[in-house]
Design a protein around this nucleic acid. Sequence first.
DNA 1: GATTGACGCCGAG
DNA 2: CTCGGCGTCAATC
Length: 192
Amino acid sequence: MKKKDDVIISISTYKHENLHFAVGYSNNRKIVRIALPQKSLEEAVYEISKYHPKYHLSNENNNIAQKISSMYFGENLDFDLNLLELDLGESFPERSTLKTSFERKVILEVAKIPYGCVLTYKEIAKSINSHAYRSVGTAIGKNPFPIVIPCHRVIRSDGKVGGFGGGTPMKVEMLENEGIKINKSLKISDSK
DNA sequence: GATTGACGCCGAG
DNA sequence: CTCGGCGTCAATC
């Protein structure tokens, strides 16, 4: 009997401006994880393979990886969320980082934030009827689909950009690529 | 239970 | 403005 966790995923990559993007797919063609851009191909692939050790590299679907890189660099593109395997808890019980309903609620709420806009961790918590601001941050930190699920658009209530898995500088860069102004003390400068 | 957070709020310097 | 300190609650051990 085949364990679900043994599925072999395929990883496709795309390079732009010396940054390597990687996307992992399950055998049903859904995206199981997106890697933030890395300086080398090996690092980009590792960001996927550390959650899904059984994989092969593929050149199929790297148009998607290319699209994701365009979004990273600030293009305002629509992305079909149906391409994402949001049900990771079921499909990949061991590797999942979206196990609980709380985490899924948070991620789905973040998915609604439009291009060029930001919300605070507190606002996300409020919209899912919770006061667990810190837990919202922790859940967003596990986002398997960065860039597409715009976790970089969630900031602190004091106006600072806050933490980010790929480092605060990357978060700043992504926000600036969307036209959001950020001053030297890492605060969003009001764009009115 | 105890510890740990990509947080929030307030008060003291 | 920076820093503690405490509040808060989901996840993890």
